[in-house]
């Protein structure tokens, strides 16, 4: 067997019970060209340091648990291959723009509130009545929103968004893209309700179209595009309500 190649992971450590400042800890891990960064972190957890704390589950890029900063870029660590960094060291940090719970684990509280705020569900009166069979939806109607329904809530986009880093009122890329996804769904009747939320304060207007959310999205959702489209819809609605203050609730289709 050939001498085992290794590489170095520099991992962000922070423990809320004992630390006031974060630090970096270097670990030497075996190098395997099939390994992803997550495999290396799991190897450390299993064999070297059981105190290292991170989230993961599906390791196939769809559960959205294992987003971290890898050499400064927000990445799903299950899709970041060691071979793309070897032999240089890899620096792993928790996603920026989120409070850190411990080590590589960040708090989702703010994100979950924003997700809930955009009412990401079908709103219509007969939504629980299945007697008439499925609502018809043509493939073209499906295509109008499908891309925006692919979000896995991995929150890489929030880590890439400088506005999300300092503007709490801003709902952020993933939540807005999901709101837009339901607004574009031919089965939905809730656009006016959602626009009430999106029009408020910096909720949507905080976006300055930096575009990095789209650049880092592992599922090609294009939240930046969704937000610009949603802004156009919101602007039309704003002026419509301005022009017709009464009875302007229905935003139409």
């Amino acid at each position: 067997m050939p001498a085992e190649q290794t590489m170095t992971l520099e991992i962000f450590r922070y423990h809320p019970e004992t630390d006031s400042e974060p630090r970096f800890q270097a670990y030497e891990v075996p190098y395997d060209e099939d390994w992803v960064v997550l495999d290396a972190i799991n190897w450390i957890k299993d064999h070297v340091d059981g105190t290292l704390t991170h989230r993961w589950s599906c390791r196939m890029g769809v559960c959205g648990s294992c987003g971290m900063m890898v050499n400064g870029d927000p990445k799903l660590t299950c899709a970041a291959f060691l071979k793309d960094y070897y032999p240089r060291p890899v620096k792993v940090e928790p996603l920026v723009n989120f409070p850190v719970e411990r080590d590589l684990v960040v708090s989702l509280d703010g994100f979950m509130e924003k997700l809930e705020a955009v009412k990401p569900y079908i709103i219509r009166d007969d939504v629980n009545d299945t007697s008439g069979g499925e609502y018809l939806q043509s493939p073209a109607e499906l295509a109008r929103y499908k891309q925006y329904s692919m979000c896995i809530n991995c929150m890489l986009c929030y880590a890439a968004c400088p506005v999300a880093g300092h503007e709490d009122e801003f709902l952020g890329p993933a939540a807005l893209a999901l709101g837009h996804r339901y607004n574009r769904d031919s089965r939905d009747r809730g656009r006016a309700e959602r626009l009430d939320v999106m029009l408020a304060g910096e909720a949507i207007w905080g976006c300055t179209f930096v575009g990095e959310c789209t650049a880092v999205c592992p599922k090609h959702v294009d939240p930046a595009g969704a937000i610009q489209q949603a802004k156009a819809v919101a602007a039309q609605e704003y002026f419509r309500r301005f022009a017709m203050p009464r009875g302007a609730k229905d935003a139409g289709a």
Partner: peptide, 11 residues
Amino acid sequence: EHWGCPWSREP
């Protein structure tokens, strides 16, 4: 389907 699942569709 009513709850929004984006099922693939026939023409």
